[in-house]
């Protein structure tokens, strides 16, 4: 029983961790390239979850498509595209003019954007929780002991698989394509990259679009997994994903995924074994402790202060 419970928490933790990891990549990439904490990223995640929900309703109730596979595929593609569009527009309007302004200006602007996004969704979609009809509820029963059954849901497999596939694709983009090379160059030295003919503005835009697209994947998964979304749901997952990014070493892509998995596991084990009410306290405490004692994270490089 103890051992099965552990397995169950492990499965749930990895699923949750995949979602956090996907959001964390957006934080880590933006931080790596322009050194800014993109405070509104959690709200982009929430907006994308709403888009996925709306696409789902259009597909199932208006178009009458019954295939779950097609529905999920459409949800993913459209919410990735539209969330990318949102983040692209936000970067262009609210962050780009602030490059070179004083230090805290982009962060304050991002807090403003975060307030705008969550309240925009509240006004446009209403303040209530939006329950989604469950998508696929089939499960595999792993083992039963003492009346406790460890269960692996198909949607959990789907979440982990989709995360893995998208991460692989994303890894390919960053490592092997000209765009990825441009991103890595900008991360090291923006001025030098510009001198060598890289369009820095476009590269940064692309980074924001990619981060938002991955957040949209996470948003779609979140709607599928939890079956409910509200306009407030961007804040806490956003902070946890930021914690994940910091824990893994901000600026490092594998670090973000690793941090996401760790945060997901810590959260599920903490709520499974200690206290459900304090699970967010645990996550925030990790954030504080990591930032104070190892601000470079697990896989990050120590930061050198330049004058």
């Amino acid at each position: 029983m103890e051992y099965l419970y552990f397995i169950q928490q492990l499965i749930n933790g990895i699923t949750l961790g995949s979602i956090y990891g996907l959001i964390a990549i957006g934080y880590t990439m933006v931080f790596g390239i322009i050194g800014m904490v993109n405070f509104s990223h959690g709200d982009i995640f929430m907006v994308s979850a709403f888009i996925a929900l709306i696409v789902f309703l259009v597909v199932t109730t208006w178009l009458g498509i019954a295939s779950v596979f097609i529905a999920v595929l459409l949800m993913l593609i459209i919410s990735m595209a539209l969330a990318g569009l949102w983040n692209w527009a936000i970067e262009k309007v609210a962050y780009r003019p602030l490059r070179g302004s004083f230090r805290l200006a982009p962060l304050i602007s991002a807090i403003g954007v975060s307030l705008i996004l969550s309240n925009f969704v509240q006004v446009a979609q209403g303040p209530r929780n939006k329950p989604v009809p469950p998508l696929f509820n089939d499960t595999i029963q792993l083992a039963t002991w003492d009346g406790f059954t460890a269960v692996l849901a198909y949607k959990q497999i789907a979440i982990v698989l989709i995360t893995a596939i998208l991460l692989a694709g994303f890894w390919y983009i960053v490592q092997k394509t000209p765009l990825g090379r441009a991103q890595r160059a900008c991360e090291q030295d923006r001025k030098m990259a510009a001198l060598l003919g890289i369009d820095v503005d476009r590269t940064i835009s692309a980074t924001f679009v990619m981060g938002a697209a991955l957040a949209a994947v996470a948003g779609t998964m979140y709607v599928m997994y939890y079956g409910v979304i509200s306009y407030q749901d961007g804040f806490i997952p956003g902070i946890k994903a930021f914690t994940a990014a910091v824990l893994g070493g901000i600026g490092s892509l594998p670090g973000a995924v690793l941090g996401g998995l760790l945060i997901g596991l810590i959260e599920t084990f903490f709520s499974g074994y200690f206290s459900l009410a304090y699970k967010d306290v645990a996550a925030f405490s990790i954030l504080v402790v990591v930032l104070i004692f190892m601000p470079q994270g697990i896989l990050g490089r120590p930061e050198v202060e330049k004058v």
């Binding site: 907006v47 709403f50 888009i51 929900l53 709306i54 696409v55 309703l57 259009v58 109730t61 208006w62 459209i78 595209a81 539209l82 569009l85 949102w86 527009a89 925009f120 969704v121 446009a124 979609q125 209403g126 209530r128 939006k130 329950p131 989604v132 009809p133």
Partner: peptide, 25 residues
Amino acid sequence: IVSLGMFGPLIGLKTEQNMANELVL
């Protein structure tokens, strides 16, 4: 065009709960 993409689904299609507690657009 950009704002159509941004606002189209989020403002143009509002999710509401009907009497049976199902979401409708």
